[in-house]
């Protein structure tokens, strides 16, 4: 690569690129929201029954965890801007830990359901009504895809943390941290909708 390219740096451009990517992520989930809205429209009662079986406490706790992790994420960026590297790293580490905690909860939630015989194509589930099969199908697919994004987010933040320790990210060169933050907030954003759509159906 020529040196001219290495020197080329456009933070505003990098941010536009990141936002465009986030939009594609929104639409990726968007396809699932199309399915969700159609099937909920057709089976309101069964979706309610399905939601009653989900663990509202675990779901709520995970919501609080993810919201708090978004908070620590913005703190990390704000601290870096104030040239408080230690505080910034600490906030970033908290974000990663909260992300992992979310995954641990998700693991317990899923395994409890699976132990009760509720998982895609399970005999227990197939014996139920169509609406409930669809509800749990969407539940696994949507929270699964979201969980996958949390995993990717945690990995991304860890890489950013390494870069920060190595001095590749500095107060006047924080675009990587900012963009990773945007990605993390998007994960939060999607969960903000998934939570009421799956756990809170009356």
């Amino acid at each position: 690569m020529s040196t001219a390219l290495l020197e080329h740096r456009d933070d505003a451009g990098a941010k536009i690129g990141m936002w465009l990517f986030l939009l594609t992520e929104l639409l990726l989930f968007g396809g699932l929201f199309v399915l969700y809205s159609v099937y909920r429209f057709r089976h309101p009662g069964e979706f309610h029954d399905g939601a009653m079986e989900l663990n509202l406490i675990l779901g709520s706790v995970n919501t609080l965890i993810l919201l708090t992790s978004s908070f620590t994420m913005v703190l990390s960026i704000a601290f870096l801007r104030l040239v408080k590297r230690g505080a910034s790293l600490l906030a970033l580490a908290m974000t990663i830990l909260l992300g992992l905690l979310f995954l641990v909860n998700k693991y317990f939630e899923w395994s409890a359901k699976i132990n009760h015989g509720i998982f895609p194509n399970s005999p227990e589930l197939l014996a139920r009504s169509h609406g409930e099969i669809l509800f749990f199908g969407l539940y696994y697919v949507m929270t699964g895809l979201h969980g996958l994004h949390v995993v990717i987010g945690v990995l991304l933040l860890s890489i950013v943390m390494v870069w920060m320790v190595r001095g590749k990210i500095t107060p006047d060169r924080d675009i990587f941290l900012e963009n990773a933050g945007l990605y993390w907030h998007l994960i939060d954003l999607i969960w903000i909708y998934l939570f009421p759509l799956f756990y809170l159906i009356t």
């Binding site: 609080l64 919201l67 708090t68 978004s70 908070f71 913005v74 939570f195 809170l200 159906i201 009356t202």
Partner: peptide
Amino acid sequence: YIIVWLGLLNLTGLTIAVTVLHLGRWSV
């Protein structure tokens, strides 16, 4: 940031409360 964070936590509480209250069609 702190206000927004607390606001988000409270809104989560509110949305759960709305569900528990059974407001019928308005809850969606």
